[in-house]
């Protein structure tokens, strides 16, 4: 059963949260914090805004939404982020 459409294509926000895009990944970014200088370029460059700063100043990835695009890995000046083939 589909819900009725509202005129004007007017919709409530929040559909992006329901739609977990993590399953789209082929490669998964993995941090190697020993090389990380906490510059935050990965967070700024993530198109999904799914890289989050942790309390200790490092960054972690919300794998519910990370599509595995690899931009963070490409942008990291210290090659901290490794793209690993996802096991499915």
């Amino acid at each position: 059963m589909s819900s009725k459409l509202c005129i004007g294509g007017i919709v409530e926000p929040g559909s992006t949260v329901i739609n977990k895009t993590g399953s789209w990944r082929t490669f998964k970014p993995i941090y190697h914090h020993e090389k990380c200088i906490k510059c935050g370029i990965c967070e700024l460059s993530c198109p999904e805004s799914c890289i989050i700063k942790t309390e200790d100043g490092y960054y972690e990835i919300d794998y519910d939404y990370c599509k595995g695009c690899g931009i963070c890995s490409n942008e990291c000046p210290r090659e901290t982020i490794e793209m690993v083939l996802e096991e499915k």
Binding site: L5, I7, G8, G9, I10, V11, E12, P13
Partner: peptide
Amino acid sequence: NPKTFGAFADPSIYSEFRYM
């Protein structure tokens, strides 16, 4: 109370907006 106006409509729902 945020809302989106004129949201994306894929082919499965586009004609219905025109009909409305």
